[in-house]
Simulated scan of single mutants.
Amino acid sequence: MNVVEGETMRGDQEEMAAWFRSLEPVQPKDMVGLWSGVGIQSGHPLDGVLENLNWFGKRFHSDMRADALLFNWRPGRLVAIEPNFLRVELAIKMAPLGRTLVARHGFSYLQKVLRARGTTASLRLQALDGIETAAMIYDKQPIVDYYRRIDDDGIAGMMCLRGDPRRFFFELRKVMD
């Protein structure tokens, strides 16, 4: 895994999975709040797609519900998007398009229409390789995001799509009020 001070982390799928599993588990209550996110390059088809679409991160509520996909809509304004608007399997197939300027501009116009009408996932403790850690389970997608602690303000995420051995890795940083 290549990690350089001040630069984005990157590695291949195996390196990133080993790094993720080396981290300490997280309790769901420690996830409550607003988190900014960035993808970690690992050779997953979705690498770079969320950033191109102005992904902000995630918000976890005290009732253990979550806004799974938060995007920058306008300066200072976040919008929670309904993850069910596009099947994740199709999103992965369309990933090269998702990294284009056309996709960025088109998505910015669609955000108001795609806005979630409520929270879109649940947060709970769930076992991964026999170790319980915080996990976010999407309501209408076959996705579970597992979380592990990087440091006091940083969390690593690993998105698992049922039936797909590839993992999408990302980092979340706590946004202080």
Rank of each mutant, 00 (worst) to 15 (best):
F169T: 08
W35D: 02
G76L: 03
L161V: 14
A103R: 06
R99K: 15
Y146Q: 07
G154F: 00
W35A: 07
T100V: 09
N84V: 04
I155K: 05
V26L: 06
H44C: 00
P165D: 13
K174S: 05
D47Y: 07
I40P: 00
F168L: 12
G33A: 00
R10M: 10
S36Q: 13
G11E: 09
L70R: 02
G57K: 08
R173W: 06
E132T: 08
F56Y: 15
C160M: 09
E15Q: 15
R21V: 05
L110Q: 14
R124T: 11
T120D: 00
N2A: 09
P96S: 06
T133L: 02
Y146K: 11
R21K: 14
M9R: 04
K140N: 15
L90W: 10
S42M: 02
L90A: 08
V49G: 07
G106I: 08
V3T: 14
L34I: 00
N84S: 15
Q141T: 05
Q126K: 15
G106P: 03
A135S: 09
Y138I: 02
R124K: 13
R148D: 07
R104E: 14
H105Q: 12
D12Q: 13
R59Y: 06
E132S: 14
L172G: 02
Y147F: 15
A156G: 08
V113F: 04
V26W: 00
L46E: 05
R162K: 13
D47S: 10
V38W: 05
A127D: 10
L123K: 09
Y138F: 11
G43R: 09
Q141N: 08
N2Q: 14
V4N: 07
I155N: 01
Q13Y: 07
V113P: 04
R21Q: 06
V102K: 07
E82A: 13
L128Y: 14
G157S: 01
D12N: 15
L172C: 04
V32P: 04
L97R: 13
R65K: 14
M159Q: 04
L90P: 01
I92Y: 02
R149K: 11
Y147L: 02
A103E: 08
A127W: 10
T8G: 14
L97Q: 11
M9E: 07
S122V: 05
G163E: 12
L34T: 03
D152Q: 07
E7L: 09
P75N: 05
P83H: 05
D139P: 02
F56P: 10
F60N: 05
L110D: 08
G157M: 02
D151I: 07
C160A: 11
S108G: 10
F168N: 06
G130N: 08
S108T: 12
G11A: 08
K112N: 10
G118S: 08
R167E: 00
N52M: 08
D151T: 03
V79K: 03
P75R: 10
L78C: 07
D30T: 07
A66S: 12
R99V: 13
E89S: 09
M1V: 13
Y146G: 09
R74N: 11
V26G: 03
I150Q: 03
T100R: 01
R173K: 13
D153H: 09
R74S: 12
M176H: 14
G37T: 00
N2H: 15
T8I: 05
D153Y: 11
G157Y: 01
R115F: 02
I81C: 02
F85G: 00
N84H: 06
R104V: 08
L172Q: 06
R99C: 09
A18G: 11
